[in-house]
Simulated scan of single mutants.
Amino acid sequence: MTLLEVSGLRVTYPQGFRRPDFNAVNGVDLEIGEGETIGLVGESGSGKSTIGNAVLGLAPVSGGSIRFDGKDISKAKPRQRRLLSEHMQVVFQDPYGSLNPSRTIGQTLAEPLRVHRDLSPTATRSEVSAMLERVGLRDSDAQRYPAAFSGGQRQRIAVARALMVRPKLVVCDEAVSALDLSTQAQVLNLLKDLQAEMGMSILFISHDLAVVRYMSSRIVVLYRGEVMERGTTRDIYASPTHPYTQKLVAAAPIPDPDRRTMQT
């Protein structure tokens, strides 16, 4: 069953007096099924993050439509967006920048529960503790601040926060690009394990085709705001048809099966 359907999406930005609008995204179609991971891949400026932001309501939709769970959310009002945040969450590239340095990890993870769940303080602490354990951290970490953690640990915390209310869709926008290869592998495996456990869909955005290949069942290739090619991960890698996709595949490193099987 389709969870997210993007049809003819356009996102444009004004560039000033007598200059034409900039088409950041121009007529993009994609869909994500329940429990599926779709990869958006392209170089910087291809529009992939803009698509993710449009889905999340962080970028204006100039044309086309975005349907989530059967409902058009292209022009969702602030109140509707607050309700949607229970079902849509995001993991950004910079975990430190997305975590409030003045709040403990426990406070950060409890916030989505405070907004979307009517739980007692005891039940909230129990949920926070359970989620910290799921992402490979300790219950005592709830009392610590973001600065006390490594980059990989902070990204685990960002994943935990996104999953606290068990959303239907998680947008991962370059979620591992700031991490070293070993830590990337750990976080990617964590996402896969949690997806298997919770059943959420993932829109996985990255410039790294090898990472997208590992995470996604289908891939959409973008260039300058337009779709160049789409298909299953196997087909995109085995027989890319568009010259741009062929260049991306040729430039992608071949993973060492012993070093990059994404073992935790």
Rank of each mutant, 00 (worst) to 15 (best):
S201R: 10
D139C: 02
D193G: 03
E127Q: 05
Y223E: 10
V176I: 05
T183E: 15
M164E: 14
F149N: 01
L190D: 10
E133C: 00
M131G: 00
L209G: 08
I157M: 10
L181F: 13
M200A: 14
D141V: 12
M198A: 13
R218F: 03
R114F: 11
S216P: 00
N189Q: 15
V165M: 08
A210S: 09
P146T: 03
L209R: 10
G225Y: 05
R134G: 00
L209E: 04
L132E: 06
R114I: 14
L181R: 04
K192M: 12
A185W: 12
R218T: 13
T124Q: 11
R117E: 10
E226R: 14
K168V: 14
M200R: 10
Q195I: 01
Y145C: 09
R114Q: 11
Q155I: 11
G136N: 08
A130Q: 06
Q143W: 01
S120F: 09
P121N: 05
L119P: 10
R154W: 01
M131P: 07
C172P: 05
H207T: 04
L190H: 10
L132I: 12
V220R: 06
L203K: 09
A175S: 12
S140H: 03
Y214Q: 15
E133H: 01
S126Y: 05
R144E: 04
R224Y: 00
D180M: 02
P167L: 03
D173P: 07
L169V: 02
A123R: 04
A196V: 02
T122M: 13
S201F: 05
Q155E: 08
A162H: 04
P121A: 12
S217W: 02
V227H: 09
A158S: 09
A142V: 15
G199E: 07
V187W: 08
A162E: 14
V211Q: 10
L169S: 12
I219A: 15
G225H: 06
V176T: 04
T183M: 11
V211L: 14
S140D: 06
D141N: 15
A158Y: 04
F204H: 13
M164D: 07
D139V: 13
S140L: 08
R138F: 13
E197K: 11
V165S: 04
G136C: 13
L169G: 05
I202N: 07
A148M: 09
R156E: 11
V135Q: 07
L194D: 01
S216C: 01
H207P: 14
M228D: 07
Q195S: 04
A178E: 04
L179R: 05
S216E: 00
M228P: 15
V212F: 00
D118G: 09
G152D: 03
L179C: 02
E127K: 14
V128N: 03
S126V: 13
R166T: 06
A123K: 06
D193C: 02
S216I: 07
M131W: 04
Q143Y: 09
L137E: 05
R156P: 06
G225I: 03
S120P: 08
A147Q: 10
G151L: 01
V159R: 08
V220Q: 15
E174G: 02
S120K: 13
T183Y: 12
Q143E: 11
A160E: 00
A196G: 00
M200S: 14
V220E: 07
S126P: 12
L203F: 05
L222Q: 02
L188E: 06
S126C: 12
R138G: 08
Q184S: 04
V170R: 15
